[in-house]
Design a protein around this nucleic acid. Structure first.
Lengths: 251, 251
DNA sequence: CAGTGGTCTAGACCACTTG
DNA sequence: AAGTGGTCTAGACCACTGA
């Protein structure tokens, strides 16, 4: 069936089935799941949908906006609106401390990093407390966008005491590999997971719509000696990640 | 400072600081964090804000909508728009298998459940597979909205084989307490956590805006014998929960 | 009943992409 | 330059709340 015909309002637009933008959104969802609107195909221009459906463009935009928020559709100004290909989910263990790079390699995906910040800085108050720094100590920071299999997956912002990572530019792929070479790989970590709606900047870096659900993870890692080695604040794409944990009766 | 005066556009509405709805949203955020708009106070009516700011009502609504989505403001049709009181976050362990009821009691919060479904049903294909049911077996289902300290916290949908929970209406507060009485308390569980944007129905039950980030948790629990005791699919409020896990180097 | 938010329209101009 | 999405307006009617 043709998209134009599929959106022709005779078939589906009723008067007592809720707001029209909801009806249009549902129609578009059907189109996507039924294959009339396959992944990566483009929607008709908003103005054309408005004409076809006999709705105003504002109403059409409201319907599409909801789908953009859900991650089903991507809009590019000046270009058009496109059906997004669904993403394959990746599972990550919540009981084993693993390296992103090593983890993805085991899954047969190659990883790349886009550097957003990498160097030695004056610590923020948060960092002083979490890393147990003395007055005047500096921190090494690495902030990057991590990609796997060509897809952006997570924003990772790590801070380490300068003596644990004296030369942050030495890190090219795996941070843990660099630490291990110096005999300073963390053996234990505590992490806190929560759900957030992505801010515009984060969403853009991760290639999803503003407001999409993401996982915010704050992790503190410890060396064998018990010293804090690393404070990491990451944001993972909610549509690309499942975190898996095994629980036992209070031991 | 008076709200009316605070929103008077002379002070903040410029021409080259991005879209006007973004500028208004930021101004309202400032008002909330600075105390000009305290928790539970009401905003001026949309029409009045439009007049004050010399913006159209559509633009005002767009600014407010974003704040509603973030959970900062609540709108009630026919009544008004109100600043929401921030929620205190609760932390939950990801390594100990605990009961919601017991967990909250330890924190000094009383829990209540609103029952959405409770009884014996024909299993869905998902349930047959996850619980290892035989053809013709039924399942006990309990589906409830869990509240703690007067705040809705999570939607919990549990399915159990009929012989493990023969009488689902027997569950009034703690499911695990009922199982324990029969010597069938799970000792181990595997759970999968991901972030989702809440659907309208879920959002309404949890008292937050549609599209707010939430945590979707699917858990399979096992008895000491290794048998599957329970399949639980829950949705937690992202703004009310932190999940905490301890990780160790691959053991 | 008056006042509030919820939906909807027709039309305009701007900002960006693409041939 | 043409076509797309992004922003914005003024005004209308509906649905719900609360005094």
């Amino acid at each position: 069936m043709d998209v134009t015909e599929f959106l022709s309002p005779k078939e589906w637009l009723g008067r007592s089935a809720g707001p029209r933008y909801v009806q249009l959104r549902r129609r578009l969802e059907e189109g996507i799941s039924s294959g009339v609107l396959p992944p990566n195909s483009s929607l008709p221009p908003e103005r054309e949908i408005a004409e076809l459906t006999e709705l105003s463009r504002v109403t059409v935009r409201k319907a599409i906006q909801e789908l953009v928020r859900q991650g089903a559709i991507e809009q590019r100004q000046g270009s058009g609106s496109f059906v997004r290909a669904p993403v394959e989910k990746v599972e990550q263990s919540l009981s084993h401390l693993t390296s992103f790079t090593e983890d993805m390699k085991r899954r047969g995906k190659d990883t790349t990093s886009k550097w957003l910040e990498r160097g030695v800085f004056m610590p923020s108050p948060d960092e002083v407390v979490a890393l147990g720094l003395a007055a005047g100590d500096s921190v090494s920071r690495i902030y990057r966008l991590r990609e796997a299999g060509g897809q952006p997956m997570a924003l990772e912002r790590a801070s380490l005491p300068l003596d644990i990572l004296p030369n942050p530019t030495e890190v090219t792929t795996s941070l843990y590999a660099v630490l291990e070479r110096n005999g300073l790989r963390p053996v234990r970590a505590v992490q806190k997971i929560s759900a957030i709606n992505l801010e515009p900047v984060e969403a853009e870096l991760l290639g999803v719509a503003e407001g999409t659900a993401g996982l915010s993870i704050q992790r503190t890692s410890y060396l064998e000696t018990g010293r804090v080695a690393e404070l990491t604040r990451s944001i993972y794409r909610g549509d690309a990640y499942d975190f898996v944990a095994e629980l036992r009766l209070s031991s």
